[in-house]
Design a protein around this nucleic acid. Structure first.
Length: 460
RNA sequence: GCCCCGUUCGUCUAGCCAGGCCUAGGACACAAGGUUUUCAUCCUUGCGACAGGGGUUCGAAUCCCCUACGGGGUGCCA
């Protein structure tokens, strides 16, 4: 174990956002690849906005993505508790330290951190008032992604609110010191405030950690401007879980938002990410969210799954849709799904795509019906092939193929003349898995019955 | 307003730090062909970018400056 200690410090105030998940992921990757410790610290100092449900969703999301923490809720460590709401004594002690050093004072019931430097008053257009400012020394932020960023604070800031709750800037720094955090990896929205944090580290005579400020994830340009918000489509981790995306694909996608492995490899497993990830290679500019790329990565991952793994994941989504149950035959399920794996790009759409394998109650695609069945002779084609298929002793691709070929030879046509009608008769659509294997898998009985039904239904 | 950070194809990005190998590479998306006698797969091809202007240099996507644009901060939110 190295001395690298990173923390992911969310506040449970709402649904887990994709940007939040990426911050967690980058921290986790950094910890894992450096053999360090990943701390999960819950920043629940804002009692008004924290909810139990949000906390549960957060923990759930991390677990689903496979981001396990070494210290945090449910995992005691030497620097707990890991909920800020339970660390009041620690904050009070540190507050006293600042007061003793003459670096904190009360005003209007709140406690302010006192900057060092000459004081003057100036009209501030943002505050729209004459306010006190300080000529403080600039602080240098050592950022692994952006290099050295110099910025200076010019106003004292609140470290304890008048209701007695310590403020974010204060607890964040106190905890980072107490928890011996070595690297702070977080969103760029914190960069400007980092000068406040460095001031605090200095006041406590503690060495600031290394910082790494990640670029923001911006809205899809079609959705508007600015950073992605929780209301935007695709913004919530829970949504991907519900839509049966593979967690590894989601991890792969969000890793690529602001980072790249610098070669043509894009489809990366979590293990590959752990070994290849590098904070220095993180992009500085904001990244826009693209749902299509996400789906593509998901499909790549689906195709590369072992059949058995694919089947068990698919089974869940089929059971959910009421198409399969715990006693659905494994062998049948496997052979049907093997035909789908190469074709269908999401587990979300799988039930619709594969319904006819599992139920007689499958949708008939109108466009296909028009195109295939409203042609002259469509039913004749079915009349011709039905008895030949019925006569087959062996029901496999080869036999089925020869039945079609014999008929085609006799009529001096290509088997193509029968394929679309038969496909439509047995599946209600004109697209799907490879034709012959599909018939084999469906089985003789099902195929013949559906052809008979179609003959009746579509006979002019 | 002020401060900080950015800006390469529509999107994610490689190249930039160590200037020439860049007529700027890959992926997604899109388009066209092809294969699959189905298709949402697969293959091929195409489309398509260094924000603008100055400078430094024999030479700049790469270094410097300015402008524009984008993002963030400027809360007794985190």
């Amino acid at each position: 174990m190295s001395d690298v200690r990173v923390r992911f410090a969310p506040s449970p105030t709402g649904s887990t956002h994709i940007g939040t998940a990426r911050t967690a992921l980058f921290n986790w990757l950094y910890a894992r690849q450096n053999d360090g410790v990943f701390v999960l610290r819950i920043e629940d100092t804002d009692k008004e906005r924290n909810t139990e449900a949000a906390l549960e969703e957060l923990l759930d999301g991390l677990e689903w993505l496979g981001l396990d923490w070494d210290e945090g809720p449910g995992k005691d460590g030497p620097y707990g508790p890991y909920f800020q709401s339970q660390r009041s004594d620690i904050y009070q002690a540190h507050l006293q330290t600042l007061k003793d050093k003459g670096r904190a004072y009360e005003r209007d019931g709140a406690v302010y951190f006192k900057l060092e430097g000459e004081r003057y008053t100036e009209f501030d257009s943002y505050a729209n008032a004459e306010i006190e400012k300080v000529r403080a020394e600039p602080v240098v932020i050592d950022d692994l992604i952006r290099g050295q960023v110099t910025r200076k604070e010019e106003r004292d800031f609140v470290i304890q609110r008048s209701n007695g709750d310590p403020s974010f800037h204060f607890v964040n720094v106190v905890d980072d010191i107490e928890m011996k955090i070595t690297h702070v990896i977080r969103g760029e929205d914190h960069l400007s405030n980092t000068s406040k944090h460095v001031e605090l580290f200095n006041a406590f005579e503690a060495t600031p950690p290394k910082f790494a400020h990640l670029p923001m994830i911006l809205k899809d340009p079609r959705e508007g401007k600015g950073k992605m918000s929780k209301r935007d489509k695709g913004a919530l981790i829970s949504e991907y879980k519900e839509r049966n995306f593979l967690p590894e694909a989601v991890v792969n996608f969000i890793a690529l938002l602001g980072w790249s492995p610098k070669d043509d490899q894009e489809s990366l497993t979590i293990d590959a990410l752990v070994s290849r990830f590098n904070l220095n290679d993180v992009q500085k500019g904001g990244a826009r969210f693209d749902e299509k790329k996400m789906s593509h990565l998901n499909f790549e991952r689906m195709k590369s799954m072992d059949l058995s793994e694919y089947v068990s994941t698919a089974r869940a989504s089929l059971e959910n849709a009421g198409l399969a149950s715990s006693d659905t035959d494994d062998a049948y399920l496997s052979s049907a799904l093997a035909l789908c794996q190469e074709k269908i790009d999401s587990f979300e759409n799988l039930p619709e795509f594969a319904a006819y394998f599992f139920s007689e109650d499958y949708a008939v695609v109108e466009k296909a019906e028009k195109k295939v069945m409203q042609k002259d002779g469509a039913v004749d084609r079915l009349d011709e092939i039905a008895p030949r298929l019925a006569a087959l002793e062996k029901w496999d691709q080869t036999s089925i193929d020869s039945a079609f070929n014999q008929l085609a030879d006799e009529k001096d046509l290509k088997p193509f003349a029968w394929y679309p009608v038969v496909r439509f008769a047995v599946s209600g659509t004109n697209s799907g898995p490879d034709f012959l294997p599909m018939l084999e898998t469906l089985g003789k009985e099902r195929v013949l019955k559906r052809i008979d039904n179609a003959r009746e239904r579509y006979r002019p």
